[in-house]
C-alpha cells in the first residue's frame, strides 16, 4: 500500500472488541474457504472412500477396513508404485543434469540484453497443450518415425522405444525441463560473483569453485526445482498413458483407471490417491526441513 494514511489513526477507528489477530482473517478467509471446500473436504472424502473395499458408484459409503491399502502392497501392484517412483527420480536427475548447465549459461554467460529472449525461448513450449506435445513425441519415436529415419540415414540401427519406459522418460523430461531451468536460473542469477572471483584469487580450480561456492549458494534452487519436477512426475498421467505401453502402468494411470477407465473401484483408486498424497507430502516435508535452510537463515 502506498497511500500515506497513518496506520495508528485507522487502527483506533476499529471497535475495541475486535482483537488485532482477527483483522487479517477478512483477507485470508476467501483463500481459506477456497482451500477448505476444494482441498481439505475433498481430501477427507477420498480418505473415507479409501476405507471402503471395492466401492462402485451407486453404492452406500460405509468405511469398513484397510483392504484397499493392503491390496496396494501386494506383489501385483507394488511394482506400479516403484515404477512411478523410479520415473519420478530418474526424470528429476535428468532434468537437473540437463537443466543446470543451461541455467548457468543463461544466468552467467549470455549477455544481459539477450537473456530475456533466451528465457522466453525456453518456456515457449509451455504455451502449447501438454497433450499435443506428447502426441508429437509419438510421431518422432515410433518405429517408422522421424528418429529412426534419422538414425537410418547415418547408418545406425533403429530403436524401438515407443510404448516403453525410455519414451515415458523422454516425454516427462521434455515436459518438465523448462520448470527446472527457470527455477535454477532464478537461483543462479542471485549468485554472488565476487565470491567466485575470491575463490579464483585464493587458488581454487574452476571445479573446486563450482562445488564449494556455486553449488552451496544455489542449493535452495536445486531443491525447489527437484521437488517441483518430482511431484509433477508422480502425478503425471498424460506421458505414461500416451507414450507408455502395455507394461508401463503408473500410480496416476492406475488411479484414472479405477475412476474413469476400464475398471470401477473408487475405493482402491482412493487408497492409491492417498498413497500418492503421502509420498508427495513426505517430499515436501523433507524440503521444508532441509531444503529451505539457506533462504531462511541467509537472507
Amino acid at each position: 500500500m502506498s497511500s500515506p494514511s497513518p496506520p495508528l489513526s485507522t487502527e483506533s477507528d476499529f471497535p475495541k472488541a475486535s482483537p488485532r489477530w482477527l483483522q487479517p482473517l477478512v483477507l485470508l478467509s476467501p483463500a481459506g474457504i477456497w482451500l477448505a471446500l476444494l482441498l481439505v473436504i475433498p481430501t477427507l472424502l477420498i480418505l473415507e472412500l479409501s476405507l471402503v473395499p471395492g466401492i462402485r458408484p451407486g453404492q452406500v459409503v460405509n468405511p469398513s477396513g484397510l483392504e484397499n491399502y493392503t491390496r496396494i502392497f501386494q506383489p501385483d501392484y507394488f511394482p506400479v508404485l516403484t515404477r512411478s517412483l523410479s520415473f519420478a527420480i530418474a526424470t528429476t536427475l535428468i532434468c537437473l543434469l540437463l537443466g543446470f548447465p543451461v541455467a548457468y549459461w543463461i544466468a552467467l554467460i549470455v549477455p544481459k540484453r539477450w537473456r530475456n529472449l533466451v528465457v522466453l525461448g525456453f518456456v515457449l513450449p509451455l504455451w502449447t497443450s501438454s497433450l499435443l506435445r506428447s502426441y508429437a513425441w509419438i510421431t518422432i519415436l515410433r518405429p517408422t518415425g522421424v528418429m529412426n529415419s534419422l538414425l537410418g540415414t547415418v547408418g545406425l540401427p533403429p530403436l524401438d522405444i515407443l510404448n516403453r519406459e525410455p519414451a515415458v522418460l523422454i516425454g516427462m523430461t521434455y515436459s518438465l525441463l523448462p520448470y527446472m531451468v527457470l527455477i535454477l536460473y532464478a537461483a543462479l542469477e542471485k549468485l554472488d560473483r565476487s565470491l567466485l572471483e575470491a575463490a579464483a584469487d585464493l587458488g581454487a580450480t574452476p571445479a573446486q569453485a563450482f562445488w564449494n561456492v556455486t553449488v552451496p549458494q544455489t542449493l535452495t534452487g536445486i531443491a525447489a526445482g527437484s521437488l517441483l519436477v518430482f511431484i509433477s512426475c508422480m502425478g503425471d498421467f498424460i506421458n505414461p498413458e500416451v507414450l507408455g505401453g502395455a507394461s508401463s502402468m503408473t500410480v496416476a494411470r492406475l488411479v484414472y483407471n479405477q475412476f474413469l477407465g476400464a475398471t470401477q473401484n473408487w475405493g482402491f483408486g482412493s487408497a492409491l490417491s492417498m498413497i500418492l498424497i503421502l509420498i508427495v507430502s513426505i517430499a515436501i516435508a523433507l524440503w521444508l526441513k532441509y531444503g529451505d535452510r539457506s533462504s531462511a537463515g541467509g537472507v
Binding site: S130, L131, Y135, I138, T139, I140, I238, L260
Partner: peptide
Amino acid sequence: MTIPSHPQTPSLSRRRFLQA
C-alpha cells in the same frame, strides 16, 4: 512430420479429465 489432427483417444485430454 505430421501431428495428429485430432487426439486419437479423447478420453485423455486434460480438460476432459479435469471436468470429469
